[in-house]
Amino acid sequence: MKAAAFPLIALLGLSAGCGKPKGQAERPQAVINFHQLFSENCAACHGTSGKTGAGPKLNDPLYLALASREDMRNVIENGRPGTPMPAFGFARGGTLTEKQIGAIVDGMEKEWAKPVNLQGATLPVYGIAKAPPGNARRGQAQYMRNCMMCHGFGSFKGIAGPITDPNYLALVSNQYLRTTAIVGRIDWGMPDWRHRIPGHVMNDQDISDVVAWLASQRPKGYMMAENQSTDNSFANQSSPDSEREPKR
């Protein structure tokens, strides 16, 4: 009985061809599936499906409404020097092609972006280059008003822990501070710019001021790159897009 079952299985397997190879091995540069790219390259810091990770939360409609595609593409390609965000662009020593970076940005927009109800507030400016210049002295007052309750000041630590710690400030960019000041961190209970104090919405200037004050607390010698031009892209380096395809 058993001996008779084997040829049957073999025949079934053959007719179903379940052992038949599906596709041929791809070059890693040929992968343009958003979920695969995100889980292989981004999930470690930004969390599975961009939900909760040690780095900024990307699966967040508010963040996606704030940052433009161009902004995101630029960050993925060139990284944020001085912070733990590495450059992924091939020309920057990373492993992703322009096409793959585009697929990641498109995927985030397509899968995670949703219309945001601003409840009457206007969305602040994203980029620090375009934001109004901040005033550190006014920023301290804004900090006391909007942030101190959770992040503390001096010997008061606050429930969320200090962000004035020089070690912390040495590892975050002004852009990161600004982005976080706007979108908050809803998965950890940090409200966005509209909901810090009941009845008060921080405006562009308030946010710039807080960032300016925090930046003034940063130890010397860190995050210098941000103030300089970040456009020192490598010359004469071809991306694998244009490089040899597997010869056949």
């Binding site: 040690a54 733990p84 969320a160 200090p162 710690d165 912390y168 975050v172």
Partner: peptide
């Protein structure tokens, strides 16, 4: 704390 979270990023 924000510093510890940053540390997790450095670890990665």
């Amino acid at each position: 704390t924000p510093l510890e979270t940053r540390g997790a990023l450095v670890l990665q």
